[in-house]
Amino acid sequence: MYKETHTHEEHLSIVAQGLTKRFGSFTAVDNISFNVKKGEIFGFLGANGAGKTTAMKMLCGLSKPTSGNATVAGFDVSTQSEQIKKNIGYMSQKFALYEDLKVWENMRLYAGIYGLNDNEIKSRTDEILQQLDFQNERNTLVKALPLGWKQKLAFSISIIHQPDIVFLDEPTGGVDPAARRQFWELIYQTADKGITVTRTTHYMDEAEYCNRICILVDGKIVALDSPKQLKETYSAQNIDEVFRLLARKAIRNQ
């Protein structure tokens, strides 16, 4: 029995049980439980204020859960948040790189913080610049980049240390469709390397690209399955329809 559980947990990146976050009398995330497998692209889908960002912040160790527990990369979110931080990457909803630093300087800073040495930093920087086709922007101040490029850069920097799991909070918000498609290519490339991708979104079409999605309504999980399975269960044409069926009951943000 023990052995079975052990092997079972071996291929899980995230295990959440009854994770809850309250701000005063407001329950932002209400008793959610789910597992995320290694190398999976896992999506949190929900309206604004459904609790997606709060759930993600608890998993990243940015916010302390009110109750419940979760392990990320094998570490407990309540007690081992600093160990978790070594093994994850995070891209916030709000662009959070230093705009007054150049592209290569931002890369060097974060790579350095994650413990890469100067040689490793150099080769990783070249690799990423090539992957993004950014060679000409190496010395550009980040504030001079267009939004779509900034987001791609932020994503690449969030995985500069090749973490086990990367958390992306609305990474494609405000980005044009072409840039969004390129962004998805980056996400697939990342997942192919075995990095677990957890992301939030409110774009229904993007949800279809995830391996599994978890629909949050008023802080609760109302559905969790692969997009295909969800469409079958609710006999819907697309995820948008599934979402509208489920979100009809929402109280917040009408």
Partner: peptide, 14 residues
């Protein structure tokens, strides 16, 4: 205010 501190806080920097 800029939000850059959040990116720092999610790193293992002490």
């Amino acid at each position: 205010e800029k939000g850059t501190i959040e990116q720092m806080n999610v790193t293992p920097v002490s």
